[in-house]
Computed example of a mutant assay.
Amino acid sequence: MKLTPRDLEQISTGTLQHYNANAEDFREGTRDHDVTQNIAALLRHIDVTPPFTILDFGCGPGRDLKAFTALGHHTIGLDGAERFVAMALDATGCEVWHQDFLHLDLPDARFDGIFANAVLFHVPSQDLPRVLRQLHATLKPGGVLFSSNPRGANQEGWHHGRYGTFHDLESWRRYMTNAGFVELEHYYRPDGLPREQQPWLASVWRKPAI
């Protein structure tokens, strides 16, 4: 069923209200999550001389923004939740953009890498092609995008106050390749567990060089 502009506005507003209302609990609950495997997956595929210019897309309270900065990279955060933007600014001192994922305003060819960890699944499948094209456009030629999403059987809807879309690998590949990306690798998380105990699909993609 096609979502109307009103539906999309309600999805965005409702999801952001949930994060704003639960910002402190989210920060404490995710503070110690180990995503070093995901950070390394992005960085090892960037083929320019460091330091890199990185967009932490959906930066939340700033945990990973701080990690990239500590590694010496120039990192800009972006989030739609006002409280997360304030938290990230306070925690890192980095530049943080307050932008709704469904109403992005991104510069052309600005970033060497985009880190989209546990975030793109919030974009309704109807709008995902447009959002991915915008991310493609804000990468420099040869730039790299990392994404990690909870996987599923391509169902979408409301879950515990947030809207989510749960792609399988084949579906995610179609969206990414149709947006102009080339796959570099994918893996499932947490590492070292049986597949049925790995709810996260991580993947790394390149914008072809001109």
Rank of each mutant, 00 (worst) to 15 (best):
L43N: 00
T49F: 02
L102H: 02
A116N: 08
G152Y: 04
T49C: 07
T53F: 02
A86P: 03
A40V: 13
N22H: 15
R31C: 03
F68L: 01
A41K: 05
F115G: 00
V35W: 04
N149M: 13
L201A: 09
L132I: 07
S171M: 08
R173F: 04
A91D: 11
L139R: 06
Q37E: 15
G72V: 00
L55W: 01
E156F: 07
G77R: 03
R195D: 14
A88S: 12
V131M: 08
P51Y: 10
P50V: 06
F146H: 15
T177E: 11
H33W: 14
M87L: 10
H160Y: 10
A137V: 05
V144E: 05
G192N: 01
D64C: 01
N154C: 10
G180S: 03
A81L: 01
G93D: 03
M87P: 06
P5V: 10
Y19H: 14
T69S: 12
D105T: 13
D32H: 14
P124S: 10
H167P: 12
H159K: 14
R130C: 05
A67P: 02
S203F: 02
V131G: 03
E95Q: 10
H160T: 14
D127H: 07
V123R: 03
M1S: 15
E196F: 11
L16V: 14
G164N: 08
N178D: 15
F84M: 10
A209R: 11
G161A: 06
W158I: 13
A41Y: 07
R27T: 08
D64P: 02
F68A: 00
L8W: 11
A40P: 07
V144Y: 04
W205T: 12
H18Y: 15
D56T: 00
V96Q: 00
L145Q: 05
V48P: 05
D7K: 12
R133K: 13
Y188A: 14
Y187C: 11
F84K: 01
D168E: 06
H33K: 10
W200K: 03
D79G: 07
L169E: 15
G62Y: 02
N20L: 09
W97P: 00
F115Q: 00
L184A: 06
T13P: 03
N20H: 06
R173K: 06
L120G: 06
A153V: 14
V85Q: 04
A70V: 01
G164D: 09
V131L: 09
W158C: 12
R44V: 12
G77D: 04
T92R: 00
N22G: 13
L201M: 10
N20S: 07
N20Y: 03
H186C: 05
V144R: 02
L193H: 12
V123T: 09
H160W: 03
T53C: 02
Y187K: 07
D34L: 12
L106H: 01
R83S: 09
G113F: 04
G192L: 03
R83K: 07
